[in-house]
Nucleic acid binder design. Structure first.
Lengths: 198, 198
DNA sequence: TGACTATACATCGATGACGATGTACTGCGG
DNA sequence: CCGCAGTACATCGTCATCGATGTATAGTCA
């Protein structure tokens, strides 16, 4: 799996897991999810759909155009559904470390059955955040914001520290609630919500 | 400029602006800067160096191997130095919105001469963060963390909100100090620090 | 009617990033 | 002396992404 190969495909699989959609609607949802940070070109989406279809992960059904041109309704196959679960349960390391990827994964983690498997993924992120890492070093030693005289580099460390603190807090409380049975999150969405249209 | 084309090249230009380096050392510095989030493959770095050389932005000077194999000392040309400044002053929109890109830009923003040009870049980020944007919507309306019942999606919004708050605070104080003359940051590094070797 | 916008999908060429693999030299431990 | 790790650079084929461009339909406003 190429480093970049995952993010878009994961989003496609994730959204289609919730409901069958056509490409244009899919694009709008992906744009809403991550578009403000990184827009997705149409010329990236349609080939990606084709790729997933070729791999047998989704099926296409022609429909006469309700609003305009004819649509291809996209539905996940059984293998597609299994593939999403697999990608959620065993993410690449870069999907743990890169915040963009990690957020995309989080957006669909509810579709991973069983609270302990969800918790295991959160624990991987927790382990990553617990490692002492900086953007700037004095030899081996990570530098703290206070030790820099560059205000912009100070900013990087200040912001990263605040993000990390907020995320660690959220991770710990969420892990606690996942570990106490009964209150854990179940997937109440997938295949139930068929209100694809606006 | 392709969406991905900037990040690595900016880092190369940025580090070489500070001191001439050879590829291997460059790689170690880039890995220290962003490697914990997104590792850089050697097979990506060397072609990138070649690209920049071909574009006349850097020059290569052969040196007998100090530690091992012979090195290519890399130095920014005058055009290379100008190009870094240009990329810092007029970043693509995705370099403002994508945190990875933004951090890379911030790491070298000190090399942009004149405090008001630095401030103008920070203001672009400020404007982006001030726009009400979410990852999840009810039609047009951005949803708040409290409105979601998915704990993972709640996490995304919680973390993003904390990051945004910390960054806004830092942006505002830094902008204030850039606007009050005398206390503004000058570039005290570029071309002065020639201690490239460990 | 004609211009324009939104919907909906598609292809093409260019290119940057990737993993795999190769080369070659130095220094160290066993 | 041999193997291994670290240093240092390079190429190759694959592939995901991109911008540009094209096609077609439906609805809106002048």
């Amino acid at each position: 799996m190429r480093q970049n190969a995952g993010m878009l495909e994961l989003a496609i699989l994730g959204f289609l897991y919730e409901a069958p959609l056509h490409g244009y609607e899919l694009r709008k949802r992906i744009t809403a999810l991550t578009g403000h940070v990184r827009p997705v070109a149409e010329s990236t989406l349609y080939p990606a759909i084709k790729r997933l279809e070729k791999a047998g992960l989704l099926a296409r059904e022609m429909q006469p155009g309700a609003a305009a041109a004819p649509r291809h309704m996209l539905t996940l196959t059984t293998e597609g559904r299994a593939e999403l679960v697999r990608r959620l349960a065993e993410p690449e390391q870069v999907e743990i470390t890169d915040e963009n990827r990690w957020f995309t994964l989080l957006a669909f983690l509810r579709h991973l059955p069983e609270a302990d498997r969800q918790a295991e993924v959160l624990r991987r992120r927790l382990r990553f955040l617990d490692e002492p890492a900086s953007f700037f070093y004095d030899g081996e030693r990570p530098l703290r914001a206070e030790e820099l005289d560059d205000p912009f580099r100070q900013g990087i460390l200040t912001i990263a520290r605040a993000t990390s603190a907020a995320e660690l807090k959220w991770l710990r409380t969420t892990l606690r609630s996942l570990e106490s049975p009964g209150t854990g999150s179940r997937d109440v969405t997938g295949a139930t919500d068929l209100t694809a249209e606006a």
